[in-house]
Design a protein around this nucleic acid. Sequence first.
DNA 1: ACAAAAATTCGACTAATAACGTATGACCTG
DNA 2: CAGGTCATACGTTATTAGTCGAATTTTTGT
Lengths: 235, 235
Amino acid sequence: MGVKEDLSVRIAGEIVLSREPCKTIKKWREVFGVSQAALAESLGVSPSVICDYESGRRRSPGSRVVRRLVDAFIRIDEEHGSKILKAYERMGVGGSLSGAVLDIMEFPYPIKASKVMDAIQGKAVANGDLLNRDIYGYTVLDSVKAILELPSEDFIRIYGLTSERALVFTGVSLGRSPFVAIRVSTIKPGMVVLHGIKEADPLGLKIAKRDKIPVILSGLDTQEELIQRLREVTG
Amino acid sequence: MGVKEDLSVRIAGEIVLSREPCKTIKKWREVFGVSQAALAESLGVSPSVICDYESGRRRSPGSRVVRRLVDAFIRIDEEHGSKILKAYERMGVGGSLSGAVLDIMEFPYPIKASKVMDAIQGKAVANGDLLNRDIYGYTVLDSVKAILELPSEDFIRIYGLTSERALVFTGVSLGRSPFVAIRVSTIKPGMVVLHGIKEADPLGLKIAKRDKIPVILSGLDTQEELIQRLREVTG
DNA sequence: ACAAAAATTCGACTAATAACGTATGACCTG
DNA sequence: CAGGTCATACGTTATTAGTCGAATTTTTGT
């Protein structure tokens, strides 16, 4: 079984097994950087069909549809030089995570963003009204290393599971770059946590508001404590 | 992501992506060693529902159904001591195949059993009328080593992809044990090739007829030639 | 701020599937 | 050969996925 088949199986399995296939479909479309219209054309259907799937109007897509969807993703990626496939290949089977990724976890059940905030003694500095959304996991990143080391397409490592997750940045000095990175990326986290500063950069917050991403400042002292608290959030 | 989730994704992805989800569903049910009735009960539906899926009467099961199916497989396995999960774990990511497995391949498209037969200069000695069925891959096994070395649950390695495949036994002396092994196993190959004998054991053939498995005797001289021809069958 | 593109929502229709119970047949066991 | 298990086949009905095109909202680019 080649890398292509492996990735296909992963995507298909993930779509089917996820609580909300619609969101997972959307996530992968965004990972592949295709618009609904382009995807629809590649499938030979009208754009609204894609919208229907992603909005959850059609909640349980048949396996035939999922298969065509996955095939289309791979096909489109090939037409674009197989960037995603190569990125996936690069991360290898159980490949070691870059040093930039300090911790990563999927929750066994959805957890409210507000609960994550409380767990790390955080306070909301943007979009506090969106904190009742569900979060399905988190990724803790070393800000500096992430910027220096992470190859451009390695967001698959970070968003590989669900995009409805918390992105936690440690060692933050200003609090702008994380948001610039998010802004550029096609795929958005469900919430962002900054650790290491007392107040966030205004421009960063502006971006967050624009993208409707809640931003939390963690009040914990050390990075170790932060990770420890996050690990216990499901308890 | 734990082993359990990994296996779940694999199964789900494989079902969805396969040309005939029905057969893949059946394969996995057999791997987990559950009867249709037991599976149906675990799902809270009537047994005919399972049959309908496996027979292909419902060709494109919705993702909700696939998810419930996979969950049921895992659940049932847990009730039985997680045997399958452990076996899967044991084979590891890209784990090395046992020395008993000489070659293994998935065809990019279905190939008629008769074509496989011709490629290896074989002649049918049982169920020759079933040779127009589709074959999706093959596994070449060293008969002696397979019997001596293969742990009982490692059929996942062999049947891991599609069960609609050719099982090729080399170094056969009598031609009985392979069929005994197949008989005992809950999961059946699409065809069996024996290499190394001039005529097959009558009892072995009887079993094959019972299970409707075509049996081919390969006329090629060496094992190397056999593998070479098989590799070229897709050409 | 404005126009263009993309994404989403909606209503209505068709085709397909989910689900059920029962009947049938093959096979093993006593 | 009778009884049990397992798998399959059939007929039916309620439900839903799937489709389309038009209208609407959101996002993007200039």
